[in-house]
Design a protein around this nucleic acid. Structure first.
Length: 272
DNA sequence: CTGGGCTCCTGTCAGC
DNA sequence: TGCTGACAGGAGCCCA
């Protein structure tokens, strides 16, 4: 579910509510992607700092006790709750604080909560190593994109998804950005011209910005930390619209498979 | 270094 | 109604 906009919407909705809270308890459900890597007892009493985001990861600093790196995987969401409802079958991590309960719900359990002494130290540093630029970083532009795509033979869609050039665009937004830029998702990445790289960089930013403004995309169950759903799915141009008319030209939107993921595009608007 | 395939896990939905 | 297979917002890891 969660691509950069959803993770950032989660961060924004959570940060103010939890900052300054003290950890009073911790409950682990079924195993997530990786073990926590810390003794829950050792985190009691720690004060929560300002929640940060890097790519699709969230970093919850625990002053003097390192912090927690969280990832929502494919089906995860975080809720900050005033009360303490009984844990459901998919609630696999609870961080109790004196201001409320931070709960990770994640049916597929591809998500993770990993303790680390600091962002710059293993294992957190290792997980963040190799991530591309943040899309809203001023260094991310057509020149950067073009340079990093040089020599790559994978399809441009897969190069965007890989996240080692620019982070944040997952399956929905990679499709949408390529549509906005008028680029065929099958184009070999290294063959993207410089002018088109400029357009793609702009499109990636624009799509992620629009999604952020819409509160993210709620296909099924995404909610921010206070339970609010996103609405970007209402303005998606191609994602999930196989067979329906392109909103720009009317041609039927196509669905293909790239790297075992669905890609949606308009065969008329998007060129090689 | 690059690319491709596999893997983790559960829920939902279409089709028979 | 029940079963089966495809598919779902991610990304680390291994091997060629």
């Amino acid at each position: 579910m969660p691509e950069l906009p959803e993770v950032e919407v989660t961060r924004r909705s959570l940060a103010g509510a939890i900052q300054g809270a003290r950890v009073t308890g911790l409950r682990l459900g079924k195993p997530l992607r990786w073990p926590l890597g810390a003794d829950p007892e050792a985190l009691l009493g720690a004060r929560v700092g300002e929640v940060q985001r890097r790519g699709k990861y969230l970093w919850l600093p625990l002053e003097d006790r390192g912090g927690l790196l969280m990832h929502l995987g494919m089906s995860g969401s975080l809720a900050f709750l005033g009360a303490t409802p009984a844990a459901g079958p998919h609630d696999h991590f609870d961080l109790h604080t004196d201001r409320g309960l931070l709960r990770l719900t994640d049916p597929r359990r591809f998500g993770a909560v990993v303790w680390g002494a600091a962002l710059e130290v293993s294992p957190v540093a290792g997980l963040l190593a190799g991530l591309g630029l943040e899309p809203f970083d001023e260094r991310f532009d057509g020149a950067h994109l073009h340079a990093r795509l040089r020599g790559r033979r994978v399809a441009i869609k897969q190069a965007l998804l890989a996240g080692d050039i620019v982070v944040g665009a997952g399956n929905i937004y990679a499709c949408e950005a390529l549509f906005m830029a008028g680029i065929d998702p099958r184009l070999p990445a290294g063959r993207l011209s410089r002018p088109r790289a400029d357009r793609l960089a702009v499109a990636v930013r624009a799509v992620l910005g629009q999604a952020l403004a819409a509160g993210g995309t709620t296909l099924r169950d995404f909610r921010d930390a206070h339970g609010v759903a996103g609405s970007f799915q209402m303005q998606a141009q191609v994602y999930g619209r196989e067979g329906q008319p392109c909103r720009r030209c009317g041609a039927a939107v196509r669905r293909i498979v790239q790297g075992a993921r669905s890609t949606f595009f308009c065969p008329a608007c998007q060129k090689r």
